[in-house]
């Protein structure tokens, strides 16, 4: 299995002086689906923002599909790493769904008929073609999440990074999104507080706490380790039985 994402000794502080990441190491193989857990403020979003160069190393190194992230490679890496942000209202900023989905590929130089086709394919993958000419802010939250996924799929990324994709979704929308994500043929890193969701979608999981990567292993094994869970403020929903799934 070739390495898709490689993060080495990554450290990052916000201007306020707060150390949000503290020597993180993480390797993700091509085609893997990895969940990332951690309490609020642990640094998950910060780490994820490094993966397509919104925050830049050094200190540390980020390598995506063999290409080290730096000023010259950043545009190429942004195309290859698709980021789905925590709040779809931040991600969907164009007046129509069509323009929003086209935004990424258009920036990466796709135009004309191919651009139209990309938009249709991406919306097709999330079953939102019917909303193509609607305004993003008139969609339901579940629909907006799906369109948000489409906006990055349109650039044909090799790696999909999702920040809390299932938060605030109703059970049906949550399920529909899971089905869509399972059907995608990409490497996936998913930040989430929804442990059963991670168990369903990801075979591997990592835990970040206070800017450090503190655990890395099978999702089922991590969730089955009560001490580890308690230390890092992780809890399975009431009544959830790991053995039953």
């Amino acid at each position: 299995m070739s390495t898709s994402i490689s993060v080495t000794d990554l450290t990052f502080s916000y201007p306020g002086g707060l150390k949000a990441l503290d020597g993180v190491n993480l390797q993700i193989g091509a085609g893997e689906r990895v969940a990332m857990f951690g309490p609020n403020g642990a640094g998950k979003t910060t780490l994820v923002l490094h993966l397509n160069g919104i925050h830049m190393p050094p200190p540390g190194r980020v390598v995506v599909g063999g290409t080290p992230l730096d000023d010259t490679s950043v545009m190429d890496i942004r195309r290859r790493v698709g980021m789905v942000f925590q709040d779809p209202d931040d991600q969907l900023f164009m007046p129509t769904v069509r323009q929003d989905v086209a935004f990424g590929p258009a920036n990466f130089g796709v135009s004309g008929d191919e651009l139209d086709q990309r938009v249709l394919d991406a919306l097709g993958a999330v079953e939102m073609v019917h909303a193509i000419d609607r305004a993003p802010h008139h969609l339901s939250l579940g629909e907006r999440r799906r369109v948000a996924v489409a906006t990055v799929l349109a650039s044909k990324p090799e790696i999909l990074v999702l920040d809390e994709p299932s938060s605030n979704l109703d059970p049906a929308s949550r399920r529909e999104l899971a089905t869509i994500l399972k059907g995608l043929d990409v490497t996936m890193l998913m930040v989430t507080h929804d442990l059963p969701y991670a168990l369903e979608l990801c075979e591997r999981a990592v835990i970040i706490d206070a800017g450090k990567l503190v655990a890395d292993g099978g999702t089922r094994e991590l969730l089955g380790d009560p001490d580890m869970m308690a230390v890092h403020r992780l809890e399975l929903p009431y009544g959830f039985d790991l053995k039953a799934v």
Partner: peptide, 13 residues
């Protein structure tokens, strides 16, 4: 600011 980040993430220059 967050919208700007989301734009940059999709290649806005």
């Amino acid at each position: 600011e967050r919208v700007y980040m989301a734009m940059v993430a999709r290649g806005y220059a």
